[in-house]
Each structure stands twice: as structure tokens, then as C-alpha cells.
């Protein structure tokens, strides 16, 4: 009896301590800045540039990930072919790959002297240190978050519905568009949200492959890193925005993944 009470108490203490460890630093961001300072730093060019660049690039990269990732996830969920496991492993790779490695790898491929980049350079096309490079870095690191979730959602759709649709006259393409994708919708949306969030937070690969130029490649995480060396209020303001977005992302995923059927 006593032991159980002690155990309960101990568990509660551990839980409280851990929650404090997570919430205290986040709360400190809000405690270190007054609402007026927060609002005034939102008008600074460095903050505004980073905000708009981040939203544009993360949106574009999420669209690219969804366009390419959806068919890939559908094929891997439904078709059994040689090398499927290898494709799965490769698409998962960016999750475990350190972002700095991803950035260097992209530079080695698409940089001016890169394996592909040297030929693009002949045509006057440069990718490294441009906004395009920001998007590419984000697609690289964020795609697994969508593809994994999409594949799992497609696998959860009972193939009986697809069979029934075929006998009713639906071609494989129509089955995908009218049956499989709508039934997997919740998982696809939450995967896209997670992928967007990961793209928004991307730092390491971006700074290595795209550099850190305000208005062109300086996304919010890069702007935080840069401004904290001089203008701490701008860094904190950007951080607060990212904290709020993170909360919104978690809530959004929880809401869309509530079971409908």
C-alpha cells in the first residue's frame, strides 16, 4: 500500500519535472519580451523578410512534396515490386541524416562545381545560394514526414473499396482520385502539415546550401540565428511566432486525424 503511494508520487514527480523542463524554456521566451517590444520588432525589415520568405518557401516545398510524394506513397502502399524496400529506405533517409550532411550533399550535387551543378553552370543556371536552393533543402529534409504518413494512410484503406469501385466501372486512376485518396485524406493532410512544419524549421541544410542572405535565403530560423547576435528582441519575436505555429500544427494534426468513418 505504502509502496504504491510512493510509486505514484515518484511517477507524478518525474512527470512534473519533465513537463517543467519542456515548458520553462518556451515560457521564458514569452517572459523575456514585452508585448510592445514584440509588436514593434514585427515591423523590422529583417523580421518581415524572414517571415514572408519562410512562408512562401515552406508552402512551395510542401506543394512539391505532396505532388511527388502522393503517387510514390500510393504505389509503395499498393504494389509489390522488386526494390520497394530500397525505395522506402531511401525516401526515409533524410529523417536520420544530419541536416548539415544534407546541405553539404546538396551542394556537392547542385552547387556551382557540383556533379550536376557544373553542367547547369554552363547554361548560366545557378542553384546554390538562391531561393530555389532554400526550397530544395526544405523538400529534401521534409519529404519523409509526408511520404511515411501518406503510405501508412493508404495502407489503412481497405482494398475492398477499391475492388468494388473497379467492378462498378472505375479505372485505376479514378479509383485513386475518388476512393483511395478521399478515404486516406485525414492522414494525407496531417502528413502535409507535419512536412510544412519541418520545412519551416529547416536550418542546417539551408544555411549550407542556400546561405544566409536577407530577403533571398534567410528564413526564420536563419534570421533568429543572425539577429540574436545583435537584436535579441527580433530573435525572440521570430521564435515566439514559430512556437505559436508549432502549437497550431500539433492541434491541427490532432483535429484532422480524429476518426471520421
Amino acid at each position: 500500500m505504502l509502496w504504491r503511494a510512493v510509486l505514484t508520487l515518484l511517477t507524478a514527480a518525474l512527470l512534473a519535472l519533465f513537463l517543467l523542463f519542456i515548458t520553462l524554456p518556451v515560457a521564458s521566451l514569452f517572459l523575456r519580451i514585452s508585448p510592445e517590444e514584440f509588436l514593434s520588432s514585427l515591423t523590422e525589415p529583417v523580421v518581415l523578410d524572414a517571415l514572408s520568405l519562410s512562408f512562401v518557401t515552406a508552402t512551395v516545398s510542401t506543394v512539391i512534396v505532396v505532388l511527388f510524394g502522393t503517387p510514390l506513397a500510393l504505389v509503395n502502399a499498393r504494389r509489390d515490386y522488386r526494390g520497394r524496400e530500397l525505395v522506402d529506405t531511401l525516401t526515409d533517409l533524410p529523417i536520420v541524416l544530419p541536416p548539415a550532411v544534407a546541405g553539404l550533399a546538396l551542394l556537392m550535387a547542385f552547387g556551382r562545381r557540383g556533379v550536376v551543378g557544373q553542367y547547369l553552370d554552363l547554361f548560366g543556371i545557378q542553384i546554390g545560394f538562391t531561393t530555389l536552393a532554400v526550397v530544395m533543402a526544405q523538400v529534401f529534409v521534409a519529404s519523409p514526414f509526408y511520404i511515411r504518413q501518406a503510405r501508412a494512410s493508404f495502407e489503412a484503406v481497405d482494398s475492398l473499396y477499391e475492388d468494388a469501385a473497379r467492378t462498378l466501372g472505375a479505372s485505376p486512376g479514378t479509383v485513386a482520385l475518388r476512393i483511395t485518396i478521399p478515404l486516406a485524406q485525414a492522414g494525407l493532410v496531417s502528413g502535409a502539415i507535419l512536412s510544412f512544419a519541418r520545412a519551416l524549421g529547416e536550418f542546417g541544410a539551408t544555411i549550407m546550401f542556400a546561405g544566409n542572405f536577407q530577403g533571398r535565403t534567410q528564413t526564420m530560423p536563419l534570421a533568429i540565428y543572425t539577429t540574436m547576435q545583435g537584436d535579441m528582441n527580433a530573435a525572440i519575436s521570430l521564435s515566439i511566432i514559430l512556437v505559436v505555429i508549432s502549437f497550431a500544427v500539433i492541434s491541427a494534426v490532432k483535429i484532422v486525424t480524429r476518426r471520421k468513418y
Partner: peptide, 20 residues
């Protein structure tokens, strides 16, 4: 002939009505 062009009505045991 692919199933969509067979003009065969197939009722499944669980009916497989589209839930959405």
C-alpha cells in the same frame, strides 16, 4: 478485360459501400 469494362455486378459480403 479489366474489371471496369466487364459490366459485371459484384456484391461483396460486407457490401463495401463507400463510407465517404
Amino acid at each position: 478485360i479489366p474489371p471496369e469494362n466487364r459490366k459485371v455486378g459484384h456484391l461483396f459480403q460486407s457490401y463495401a459501400l463507400f463510407p465517404h
